[in-house]
Design a protein around this nucleic acid. Structure first.
Length: 145
DNA sequence: GGTGAGCGA
């Protein structure tokens, strides 16, 4: 019973898709004279375009190398890292990919979002802005006494 | 040994 079929995992992952429905905006907005709720004009459904990409749905066996190699086909990946636990060392199932430009990031999202990676459907989207590290800014410059 | 939504050392 070698249920290592990618189709099975893909089906499960597809059903458990949290925020992977992005292609539903097809013909719903095909020039309809309906007034859409403008309460979303200043509230984008997703994060703002950034070079940082948040990739979720990764397999446990997916490593940083595979992630970079997968996203390097749509642009120049400056940095890619798979978030792994610090105590156990196992992959948490998601990672981050940073592109050189926003165009490549968008291409990477539209090129890898909903695709297969190691037999699992991955989801790529813009990462959120993060607080800067409290170092390098307040570097203790050793009292010159 | 290894969860299955999520945002990193």
């Amino acid at each position: 019973m070698a249920m290592r079929a990618a189709a099975t995992q893909a089906a499960v992952a597809s059903f458990a898709a949290p925020r992977g429905v992005r292609a539903l905006y097809s013909s719903l907005t095909s020039g309809f004279p309906f007034n859409l709720p403008q309460t979303q004009t200043e509230k984008p459904p997703q994060a703002e375009p950034s070079t940082n990409l948040f990739v979720s749905g990764l397999s446990k066996r997916t490593t940083t190398e595979g992630l970079r190699d997968a996203f390097a086909k749509f642009g120049e990946v400056l940095h890619a890292k798979v978030v792994t636990d610090r105590v156990s060392g196992y992959s948490k199932g998601y990672g981050f990919v940073r592109y050189a430009t926003l165009e490549e990031a968008a291409a990477g999202i539209k090129g890898m979002d909903g695709q297969f990676l190691d037999g699992w459907v991955i989801f790529a989207e813009y990462a959120r802005p993060r607080p800067p590290p409290p170092s390098l800014n307040d570097a203790p410059t050793y009292n010159q006494s």
